[in-house]
């Protein structure tokens, strides 16, 4: 197993863990936490490919990861702001209870 594959597997595992968390926890904030984990796993993927890929001097992977971090931060801010707003409205962050869009 080459190093790249290892890093990729770790990233995959982290991604799956994050997904599991996003899918199974009741609290909305924990869903966001899961999402952060997934994003981070993707970042790891990017850096790993940058390091073991053909043209590291192009800095593509690194740049992508940096932008990803920036975007993730913005998204976390907005998402958490939303959660706070929802909590203010519904007095709870339990996702199972929020089914107003039920068809």
């Amino acid at each position: 197993m080459n190093p790249l594959a290892g890093y990729l597997l770790v990233a995959a595992l982290l991604f799956a863990i994050g997904l599991a968390g996003a899918l199974t926890r009741r609290n909305a904030i924990l869903v966001l936490i899961g999402i952060e984990l997934m994003l981070n796993a993707a970042n790891l993927n990017l850096i790993a490919f940058w390091r073991y890929g053909p043209h590291p001097e192009a800095l593509t992977g690194m740049m992508f990861a940096i932008f990803s971090i920036a975007v993730a931060a913005a998204e976390a801010a907005v998402g958490l702001g939303l959660v706070i707003s929802i909590h203010r409205h519904a007095k709870t962050t339990d996702l199972d209870a929020m089914n107003r869009m039920k068809g």
């Binding site: 899918l23 199974t24 926890r25 009741r26 609290n27 904030i29 924990l30 966001l32 936490i33 952060e36 976390a76 801010a77 958490l80 959660v83 706070i84 909590h87 007095k91 709870t92 962050t93 339990d94 996702l95 199972d96």
Partner: peptide, 23 residues
């Protein structure tokens, strides 16, 4: 930090009745 703030700001009840995992 943001996450922690959000958690702290949205504390209604500590632990939900039906458990932390969805159904």
């Amino acid at each position: 930090i943001l996450v922690v703030f959000a958690i702290l700001l949205t504390r209604g009840s500590e632990t939900p009745k039906d458990g932390v995992y969805s159904r």
